[in-house]
Amino acid sequence: MTADILLVDDNQIQAATRKAVLSAPDRLIVVAEDALKALELLQDAEFRDSLGLIVTDHWMPGMNGPEFVEKLRQFLPEIPVLVLSGFPDAEAEYEGQNVVFRLKPLAPEQLRSLVKSFLDSQPMSRTA
């Protein structure tokens, strides 16, 4: 299995909406319903090597965004990660984890533009 984007979100409606917003004919998006499922998918080297971006929610049951990114960075230290959260104070929890943090809601055109900049390898301002 291969993918361009791994979308991690426990909210099925938000995940489906983001997938629809980001879909393009030349783009494959895989959705994981939680961080544990995402980590399971990332054990597959072919899948992992095909990714250009991981988009994750901050607040998820079982394992939240900072815990997920911490585990992810142990074996994928350089993959771009976009964290989306409705909690402004959550950004501080990603200190030193090399992620881009954005507050929800994000307008569809803003999300598309941001993701395009990742996939096109354009330099951008990172936080945390």
Score class of each variant (00 low, 15 high):
residue 1 M to E: 15
residue 2 T to N: 13
residue 3 A to S: 13
residue 3 A to C: 12
residue 5 I to C: 03
residue 8 V to G: 00
residue 8 V to Y: 00
residue 10 D to K: 07
residue 14 Q to F: 07
residue 15 A to D: 02
residue 15 A to R: 07
residue 18 R to F: 14
residue 20 A to G: 06
residue 20 A to N: 10
residue 22 L to T: 09
residue 23 S to G: 05
residue 23 S to R: 03
residue 24 A to D: 14
residue 25 P to A: 04
residue 27 R to E: 04
residue 27 R to Y: 06
residue 27 R to M: 08
residue 28 L to F: 06
residue 29 I to Q: 00
residue 29 I to V: 09
residue 29 I to G: 00
residue 29 I to S: 04
residue 30 V to N: 01
residue 30 V to P: 01
residue 32 A to T: 02
residue 33 E to L: 13
residue 35 A to H: 10
residue 36 L to T: 03
residue 37 K to F: 10
residue 37 K to P: 12
residue 40 E to V: 00
residue 41 L to T: 08
residue 42 L to C: 07
residue 43 Q to H: 08
residue 44 D to K: 03
residue 46 E to G: 09
residue 46 E to C: 09
residue 47 F to K: 13
residue 47 F to P: 12
residue 47 F to T: 12
residue 48 R to P: 04
residue 50 S to F: 03
residue 51 L to S: 08
residue 54 I to S: 04
residue 54 I to N: 05
residue 55 V to E: 10
residue 55 V to L: 15
residue 57 D to C: 14
residue 61 P to Q: 09
residue 61 P to I: 01
residue 63 M to Q: 10
residue 63 M to L: 13
residue 65 G to W: 03
residue 67 E to H: 07
residue 67 E to D: 12
residue 68 F to Q: 02
residue 70 E to C: 11
residue 70 E to I: 09
residue 73 R to Y: 04
residue 73 R to F: 03
residue 74 Q to T: 15
residue 75 F to P: 01
residue 75 F to S: 05
residue 76 L to D: 04
residue 78 E to S: 08
residue 79 I to Q: 03
residue 80 P to K: 01
residue 80 P to R: 03
residue 81 V to S: 00
residue 83 V to Y: 01
residue 85 S to N: 09
residue 85 S to F: 11
residue 88 P to C: 06
residue 89 D to L: 13
residue 92 A to K: 12
residue 97 Q to F: 01
residue 97 Q to K: 11
residue 98 N to W: 00
residue 102 R to M: 14
residue 103 L to F: 05
residue 104 K to A: 06
residue 104 K to S: 07
residue 104 K to H: 08
residue 105 P to V: 15
residue 105 P to T: 14
residue 107 A to E: 15
residue 109 E to D: 13
residue 109 E to Q: 14
residue 109 E to A: 11
residue 111 L to F: 02
residue 112 R to E: 04
residue 113 S to G: 11
residue 113 S to E: 12
residue 114 L to I: 15
residue 114 L to W: 11
residue 114 L to S: 09
residue 115 V to C: 12
residue 117 S to K: 12
residue 118 F to S: 09
residue 119 L to G: 06
residue 121 S to M: 04
residue 122 Q to R: 05
residue 124 M to F: 12
residue 124 M to A: 06
residue 124 M to V: 08
residue 124 M to T: 06
residue 125 S to V: 07
residue 126 R to I: 15
residue 127 T to L: 05
residue 128 A to Q: 06
